[in-house]
Design a binder for these strands. Structure first.
Length: 798
DNA sequence: AGCACGCCGACT
DNA sequence: GTCGGCGTGCTC
């Protein structure tokens, strides 16, 4: 028997199966989808078995045997193995990357170099002996200072180098003590009268007959020690056992289960349409304005799927995976739900994943990667807020969860629901063409009116002498709400709004030495930081160029707004929510719940507050500048602005109190802003589609972005140039090839970035041409230190 | 990607 | 003389 293995080496020449002999003792155990340790060249690596076969095209005499089997149960099933092959083609990634992204990071390999003793310890140099304590090895990291000595031993063969491979996080185990349920057994046990500890523990056990208690807990409760427990275990009072434990099993039973809500007529129509197609691979686009009750439709559809004995995946963007959201699912489905989000530790994610793999849960709620949940009998996939760009992974494998969802729906013959108040143009266009079935919810579920939106022309404000970031109407509205004890949300687009340091004498803005981007001022740490490469340095007191002391912090970060707000309304209690204040685990939730409890009047934040904020007392939403996303050099700028404004407006007036939204803009006449005012999606769609058609962007054209980086500007440009002329020769005449041009941020980490763009409608040879391009890159450019990244269907082209 | 093999300059 | 620089080639 021979196994095809995809090894854990992400490199072009390695990106294919390698055949290995399966040793006799493993032959009954091996299955595709299991992880194995295999010899590869002169080292050992982890790999995935993708197939098992009887013959090989390779010289059978030179086959190496699998070194070790890592799993008893495959971590990937046949569906996911097939999908990896599809992803490799679809996204131009390494198959190993596709496989790795499907399993929890805890299962990914950890390689650690070690020096292993290969002779009695007395035979090695004396200074080295101390490094090996009782262990037969030292980690290479621990022994850097005696590297020279080690090298000599390596030559003698008294020490050998080795790589230890393990998975990153293990299954958590606890020592459980199962006390016998028979009082007679306990009473028949003889304990010497002077063994006070044992007698005390015996009393404890008699009180807890038949119970299973964690040993640490028992030690605490009974005031005893582990050896004492062991002595009673030996006498037959209890059984000791190491057992698997799920990390933090959030006491499901404490969450009160809640029944379904009554659907409105509109919800019912949408529900019926989906319910009638549960065994087809149809894709539905559920277009419902904010607050129209999409979630209730999801919940009831999932309920139907569960009744049929199938499973469901519910994807949400990471930022809207709030405790409120997960609570809602747990209330409905109890312990049938696993939740996967970035706030979990690797171990916790692994545990949630195992619940799915073992069939202990039937519903998964999670961010992008939850689309790979190893369900076997999938009945429904939902992508809420389907337009969100976070559904596309921005490094390899650059997959879009929507595409994976549709692939899985075909595999399982189950429907996909794409839900959004502001669908992506791609999805809406498909719905128009009848590829997806469009379902519309036009009314808010509680029938509240849409909030009133006022657009303030900031140019007027400037003209009338108001140079602050708060327009007169916004400032007034804020004061008014404060008086009425209502709550306010102020929203600041993060992009383009980081604070920087400017010298007022020479005009210098502090730049990152490694990247073409200005450094961002971080007040909490008093550091200047580069958001691209991580470079940081202390805030200077004088200008680094002209040594002037007239330097000032410029720009409008949330911190800056906070300061100005303090001058405007000193009495207001302000909560700030941005990357700085939410860095710690759970900080996000804390801020939100504090705001919900009315501990602050104003919530000030970036994108992350645009989602899932559902508090009845919010009656004013202010958008400080709607323009920042609008003028980015990206074909999706208008779409993103429209989506953001709609999303943000939806935060106001969600309950009985009517809401007002004030949007400040320097280009208030732009259609993305005027049409978002009344949530006129269709007109926006038509306008934007016309723009896309004219400029040759999705959904009219497919786009591929190819980016080069190199230490030398001219080299990067030259490879991009060569690529453009190569592509022009290979691709069809009506395909547009744009560039090469420098990327928006032309240098990151001291590497120059050049890119070119392919826009095509039909290009049957594309995959092949990309493979050819990779071959050229591999055979020539890679050696010269270039990198190449191909992004099929990028969400943005900046 | 790693790692070994292999062929030329500055040190004990 | 040797240590070590990184070019080249291979990995079932």
């Amino acid at each position: 028997m021979i196994a095809e293995v995809i090894v854990d080496v992400a490199a072009h020449p390695i990106d294919r199966p390698f055949d290995y002999a399966i040793p006799a003792h493993l032959q009954v155990l091996v299955e595709p989808g299991m992880r194995v340790k295999v010899p590869f060249g002169n080292r050992k690596v982890l790999g995935f078995i993708t197939a098992i076969k009887d013959t090989t095209a390779f010289d059978p005499a030179r086959l190496k045997p699998i070194h070790e089997l890592m799993d008893v149960v495959p971590v990937l099933n046949e569906e996911l193995l097939d999908m990896a092959k599809w992803m490799k083609k679809q996204t131009v990634c390494f198959e190993i990357d596709a496989l790795q992204v499907m399993i929890p990071s805890a299962l990914r390999a950890k390689y650690e170099k070690r020096f292993v003793l290969n002779a009695p310890i007395e035979e090695i140099a004396a200074p080295l002996q101390a490094y090996f304590g009782k262990r037969p090895f030292v980690r290479a990291q621990e022994a850097v200072e005696v590297y020279g000595l080690l090298k000599k031993e390596l030559e003698k063969g008294t020490i050998v180098a080795d790589t230890d491979i393990s998975q990153q996080t293990a299954v958590k185990k606890v020592r459980m003590i199962h006390i016998t349920d028979s009082l007679e057994t306990l009473e028949s046990i003889e304990i010497r009268p002077n063994a006070k500890q044992q007698l005390k523990l015996m009393d404890y056990m008699k009180e807890n007959l038949g119970k299973s208690i964690e040993s640490s807990q028992m030690q605490k409760d009974a005031g005893t020690t582990l050896p004492t427990i062991y002595s009673l275990v030996e006498k037959g009072a209890a059984i000791i056992n190491n057992e698997e434990l799920y990390r933090d099993p959030k006491l499901q039973s404490e969450i009160e289960r809640k029944p379904s809500l009554q659907l409105t007529d509109a919800q019912q129509i949408a529900f019926d349409a989906i319910d009638g197609s549960l065994s087809t691979s149809k894709t539905f686009l559920l277009h419902g304005i904010t607050g129209s009750g999409k979630t209730e439709i999801y919940l009831q559809t999932i309920d139907q799927v569960l009744k049929e004995g199938k499973e469901a995946i519910m994807l949400v963007p990471e930022i809207s995976l709030t405790p409120q959201m997960t609570l809602r699912f747990k209330e409905r489905f109890g312990d049938m739900v696993a939740v996967l989000h970035s706030g979990l530790s690797a171990g916790e994610k692994y545990d949630e994943w195992r619940k799915i793999q073992r069939g202990e849960v039937k519903v998964v709620v999670g961010a992008r990667s939850a689309i790979f949940a190893p369900f076997r009998n999938l009945g429904l996939i939902i992508l809420d807020e389907e337009h969100e760009s976070s559904y596309k992974q921005d490094d390899s494998p650059r997959y879009h969860a929507r595409d994976v969802a549709i692939w899985r729906s075909e595999y399982h013959q189950c429907p996909v629901i794409l839900g959004s108040a502001t669908p992506s143009l791609e999805s809406y266009a498909r719905a128009q063409k009848g590829v997806y079935e469009l379902l519309v919810l036009e009314q808010r579920a509680k029938n509240q009116p849409l909030p009133e939106v006022e657009i303030v022309d900031m140019r007027e404000e400037l003209r009338s002498g108001n140079r602050s970031m708060f327009s007169v109407p916004l400032a007034e509205a804020i004061r008014e709400r404060l008086e009425r004890k209502e709550q306010i949300v102020l929203f600041l687009n993060k992009r383009g709004y980081s604070s920087f340091v400017l010298c007022r004498d020479c005009g210098t803005v502090m730049q990152c030495p490694n990247c073409d981007i200005s450094l961002t001022y971080h007040r909490s740490t008093e550091m200047m930081k580069c958001h691209y490469c991580g470079y940081d340095e202390p805030v200077p007191h004088t200008c680094p160029e002209c040594e002037s002391e007239h330097i000032r912090f410029f720009g409008t970060g949330t911190q800056k707004v906070e300061e100005e707000l303090a001058r405007l309304v000193p009495e207001a209690r302000v909560l700030r929510m941005d990357v700085d204040t939410t860095r710690n685990k759970g900080a996000h939730e804390k801020i939100l719940s504090a705001f919900g409890e009315g501990k602050a009047d104003i919530l000030l934040g970036t994108q992350m507050i645009a989602k899932g904020l559902d508090f009845p007392n919010i009656t004013l939403v202010g958008v400080l500048s709607a323009d920042t996303t609008l003028h980015l050099p990206d074909f999706r700028a208008a779409e993103k602005t429209y989506q953001l404004l709609t999303q943000v407006s939806g935060r106001a007036g969600r309950d009985v109190l009517p809401g007002t939204v004030i949007v400040q803009s320097y280009t208030p006449e732009h259609y993305a802003i005027t049409l978002a005012k009344d949530q006129l999606y269709e007109p926006f769609y038509d306008r934007e589609m016309a723009m896309r058609r004219a400029s040759g962007y999705p959904p009219y054209y497919f786009v591929v972005n190819i980016q080069f980086t190199h230490e030398d500007l001219m080299t990067a440009a030259s490879y991009a140039e060569q690529t453009v002329s190569y592509l022009k020769g290979q691709l069809s005449a009506n395909t547009l090839i744009i560039g090469p041009s420098a990327s928006l941020i032309a240098r990151v980490n001291n590497r120059y970035r050049y890119q070119c763009l392919i826009k095509y409608k039909k290009e049957p040879k594309l995959a092949e041409v990309m493979q050819q391009l990779i071959k050229i890159y591999r055979s020539e450019w890679i050696k010269k230190g270039a990198t190449l990244a191909i992004d099929m269907n990028p969400t943005s082209v900046m």
